[in-house]
Nucleic acid binder design. Structure first.
Lengths: 353, 353
DNA sequence: TTTTAAAATGCAAACGATTGCGCAACCTTT
DNA sequence: AAAGGTTGCGCAATCGTTTGCATTTTAAAA
């Protein structure tokens, strides 16, 4: 078994005394070829250890069977899971996934998309970088007639298929949950950026308050970058208030975590004194103490759905295609950090003894 | 700005009244082309919005500028970070990264590698699936003269470049740390599989005990699958012992986490009564209460190193190449779960008041 | 002004698979 | 037995770049 020169359909053809055309057709199971020769070709191919050259086919066909995926960073839990979801469905259709990172930089994003064009990907699935406000580079993809699907961080500036979760609904529901648990002064950590997800979560928060007869109070809504440290700072700030809140709904798990740390340092009981909820269901949320109530973003399903929209678009005439906006209902993940009633009940029965 | 038919070097050539050869050479900055025409070509290319077709080039050159990466699952924190590292260096060299998942299935792994062959990747970077014991599919890559780099889960059955961390050293050091903190009965959670990493960690554990004059006790080494639930069970088991350990070094963060839960449920103080250490530095370890001491696996550097080995191999004559085995020294991440001395000190000063 | 070397560009064949069109050979029908 | 249909396969162009080997142009030397 030495290394033999790469075998092509021509080699097979020669061996069988037929032409490459016939071999090609046989391999592609064309009805124009007799069963006998098909069998012969298949057999010879196996025997000679033939490996089709997708690149040659790609050149001829003008399609590469490759999807380009752009994410801010490949190792953030959410994005990693989406990529996983995309790969899972791509895999079943013999498509490959090229992954590239934009690092939330506009310039990188533009470069990256150009690189994907050069690589001749058949289309692109992307989550827009935080600092991107111009979308010409994505439009280019559309102009080329490539399928383009946006997920999570999308924009309405583009007529494009997109998948996201219903941030409003998730926020609304979780605030409602907090209220149901007896919380009456619910604070919210938000982000001032134009990014729509945070706006939506804020809207869900305010509407839930309103519809449940609770007042919206400016001082309870604190904006920040939503990282761990920001969460700490925001919590400190809230604790300065004359009237301390009895719950915090953070638009990010990290900030919620920061708040949790501060509360614990001050021996403020969670959830009895302050209930806590985050957003994203980052893997770490189940390991905190108490485990953090949060909203699951359905990352893997989102990836799958994005891929499905992609292939749907791939199959239909670019002129006929109508972009689809898919909104996934997120799932509430209720954990101890917000189960005030239960905690009180346990406290009561323990005290009774 | 309508969609113009794709422009090729021939179009540029025609416009400039030269041939495609010249255009090609100009674009590739060949010394055989005069500066004047180079300028002209570049200008025309920009003007006509020329996009090079990598596929055609790949066909002609026999190389695609694509690396195939195989991981068990794309969304496990460790692998996601390695992929990130790989992509980072690939990106600087205008290489693209195709990612594919083996799901720890041998069959999938074989299929996946075949698919990568078809895609004509220039080489492969992979972490071997848990259940893989035959390596013919990887050998095929080598026979084709492709660069092949293995990371983390490697094998000595293949003469191949590999990157891993020094599990022995990491384990040794962390056990030493526990001893230094005053622990004398240190338990260990391990995994019975043939996978070398766990064997190495076990070896580091036993050697550290030995070299520090502590006895190795069978009953303190408990094997399991090292998931959260396994950690819980193992801890329960340890608590049944006549002499309960005063520390646990788990070969996985998840199992360590399970142990932490059990200890907390029983109000056993961490680290005062039982110190805890894990392995991997999974992101969640910094969010537990107390934060978990662990060993960082240098995932991003590992990815970068794997990519560097890859390119190194790509550059050198396959016959001359000598596989490199790179062993990264992991980093101890000391957190509260093991800082017994500090905890005792604080306890003491608090009591004094 | 011719000769000669160097510099710049052109020609044409690859790379490997696909496919529209055409041409045999064979079968059916009348 | 001639006309018309099928069936099975071959021819040759094509996808867009690259590159070895000319060939032309330019500049320098004689």
């Amino acid at each position: 078994m030495e290394i033999k020169a790469k075998v092509t359909i021509h080699d097979i053809a020669e061996k069988l005394n037929i032409t490459a055309s016939t071999v090609s057709r046989a391999l592609n199971n064309s009805p124009r070829i007799s069963e006998t020769t098909k069998k012969a070709v298949l057999k010879a191919a196996k025997q000679m250890n033939y490996q089709p050259n997708n690149i040659a086919a790609a050149l001829r066909n003008g399609k590469s069977n490759i999807i380009g995926v752009i994410v801010p960073t490949a190792d953030r839990a959410f994005f990693a899971s989406v990529v996983r979801g995309i790969e899972e469905v791509a895999n079943t259709l013999d498509y490959k996934v090229i992954i590239s990172q934009s690092y939330d930089s506009y310039e990188k994003e533009v470069q990256t998309i150009e690189a994907l064009f050069r690589a001749r990907v058949d289309g692109i699935i992307a989550s827009i970088g935080k600092n991107t406000e111009d979308f010409e580079h994505f439009k280019k993809a559309q102009q080329k007639g490539m399928p383009l699907v946006l997920f999570d961080r999308t924009t309405d500036a583009l007529e494009v298929s997109q998948v996201m979760i219903d941030d409003y609904w998730g926020a609304y529901k979780i605030v409602e949950h907090l209220i149901e648990q007896g919380c009456r002064r619910i604070a919210h950590f938000t982000n001032p950026k134009k990014v729509s997800v945070f706006k939506e979560r804020l809207r869900g928060y305010t509407d839930a308050l309103k519809n449940n007869g609770l007042p919206y109070e400016e001082e309870l809504v604190v904006p920040s970058n939503l990282q761990l440290e920001d969460g700490r700072a925001s919590m400190e700030q809230l604790l300065q208030l004359k009237e301390v809140p009895d719950a915090v709904f953070s638009a990010s798990d990290f900030a919620a975590m920061g708040a949790m740390q501060v509360l614990k340092e001050r021996s403020i009981k969670i959830p009895e004194q302050v209930a806590l909820a985050g957003f994203s269901n980052d893997p770490f949320t189940s390991f905190s103490d108490p485990p953090l109530t949060t909203v699951d973003q359905l990352s893997i399903p989102m990836g799958k759905m994005a891929a499905e929209l992609f292939f749907q678009q791939l199959k239909t005439d670019p002129n006929k295609y109508i972009p689809q906006k898919t909104v996934l209902k997120p799932e509430l993940v209720i954990r101890k950090s917000s189960l005030k009633k239960e905690a009180q009940l346990i406290a009561a029965t323990t005290a009774q003894k």
